[in-house]
Amino acid sequence: MSSTRLLLVDDEERFLETTRKLLQKRGVETFTAANGIDALKVLEDHRIDVVILDVKMPGLDGVEVLRKIKQKYPLIEVVMLTGHASVESAVEGLKLGAYDYVMKPLAIEDMLKKVNEAYDKKRAMEDKIRKAKVDRIISHPMAVFEKEED
């Protein structure tokens, strides 16, 4: 199993830096972005499995970023990170397809746990899709030449 590729989005630079170090040490390949625009850029350039996304950010808001991610990369799992215990934004996030939400401050072990769960879910989903494709190729071999979906 290759390492999880994680994108951490938060407007606290120091938090990004430190958390990246911690996660790297724990075998998670971590990318960081300080805002929504950067995050979307990173997603374009790299293949990412899980995104941890701060809800409250200047510029592009967390919920907006989530919407865009889910539009473009529906298979990427997103965990919302919030300083609020606000059910509203959490529920909104979940409705838009976020995997879960966690409260700040969060211990690194808890973060890792959530990331792994999300990654497992993504893997299961990908497996399912792969399996479906294989099934289709077996039944319709010509489908190999059809345009592959993301």
């Binding site: 430190t18 911690l22 401050p105 690194i108």
Partner: peptide, 14 residues
């Protein structure tokens, strides 16, 4: 307060 706490938590873990 939660935001700085998060940073402190991360630093402490590091």
């Amino acid at each position: 307060i939660n935001n700085p706490l998060q940073v402190m938590k991360a630093e402490e873990t590091l």
